[in-house]
């Protein structure tokens, strides 16, 4: 199975949200990373066929979405960012409704609904109205509906946004369970979410892919560009102003800074093994730092 994005563009007036994107995706988990406004959601909406590209095409095994029609959508599972529910439906009714929209027969729909509600640990509250659910419960219901039709292509747009760390770990595990033999595209700006489960990293900036690499080799390009060194407690702020600081760690009266920089920031700085987070900061700089602080504050 191959999902091909061919010269995909989406233009809003003069702004190019997705700019000539090309990719060929085979089964595996793809972590789609990018700062807010990078074009991730627009790209995912086009892959899901709910937003028409300005130009270019999306093909599954050589055939376009238009050619495949219902056949394409029957292979698709989509969990959009912040999508709404029907507040007056119970979780079970919502799942059965979505199963009907996805073309499952009544018997299969009931079976899959019960299976998935168990998997996402909502079976005990399945008869409660969705409006009484917490954010985390709604997210779990969201992924459950996406998985109803055993999709070959599973698109998850910021599935962990707004979840607490415990919920986030639970969610990662769920995605791992669902990911077998599928093309899973998981968009997030929280690097740790994808570092555990992604096989490939797609990094997006200004509507284009900056890089597309297997997770094992994705950080090779910044080898020798991640540094650690100790500084006086009082000088941390000054360093933070001039350098992209990934992390800081207090050690007695000193602070160990981890920064990404093309050149050594200090004479005694030593290079260390780069991580995905370093890579993200390297490419997105201040955007990434402000998003990180927002996420952790949230």
């Amino acid at each position: 199975m191959q999902l091909q994005l061919q010269d995909l563009c989406k233009q809003y007036g003069t702004k190019c949200a997705v700019n000539h994107v090309n990719a060929s995706l085979s089964p595996g988990v793809y972590g789609l990373l990018g700062a807010n406004g990078a074009g991730k959601t627009t790209l995912m909406r086009m892959i899901c066929g709910v937003l028409k590209p300005t130009s270019g095409s999306i093909r599954l095994n050589g055939k376009t979405i238009e050619e495949l029609g219902e056949q394409y959508y029957s292979h698709l599972g989509y969990m959009p960012q912040d999508f709404g529910f029907y507040p007056d439906f119970t979780a079970r009714e919502f799942m059965l409704y979505m199963a009907a929209v996805k073309g499952l027969d009544t018997k299969t729909a009931k079976k899959r609904t019960e299976q998935l509600l168990h998997m996402v640990n909502l079976h005990e509250v399945a008869n409660k109205k969705v409006k009484s659910y917490s954010g985390g419960m709604k997210q779990r219901l969201g992924i459950a509906q996406a998985e109803l039709n055993h999709p070959l292509i599973l698109i998850l747009d910021e599935p962990t946004a707004g979840l607490d760390p415990k919920e986030r770990i639970r969610f990662r595990n769920l995605i791992s369970d669902f990911a077998k033999e599928k093309i899973v595209i998981l968009s997030t700006h929280i690097v740790s979410d994808v570092s555990y489960i992604a096989d490939y990293i797609l990094m997006m900036k200004n509507g284009q892919f900056l890089l597309s690499e297997p997770i094992e080799t994705v950080t090779e390009g910044i080898k020798g560009k991640v540094w650690e060194f100790l500084v006086d407690n009082k000088k941390v702020e000054e360093y933070s102003r001039h350098l992209s600081v990934v992390n800081l760690h207090h050690e007695n009266n000193m602070v160990r800074l981890r920064v990404v920089s093309d050149t050594a920031p200090m004479a005694d700085a030593v290079t260390v093994e780069p991580s995905l987070e370093d890579l993200f900061l390297y490419h997105f700089g201040e955007d990434a730092q402000s998003e990180r602080s927002n996420d952790y504050a949230g």
Binding site: G49, E70, Y78, F83, G84, M98
Partner: peptide, 14 residues
């Protein structure tokens, strides 16, 4: 409500 994207991407959504 923002439910359009989920139902439109379903097999029978359109």
């Amino acid at each position: 409500a923002g439910t359009d994207s989920v139902i439109l991407s379903g097999k029978y959504g359109k």
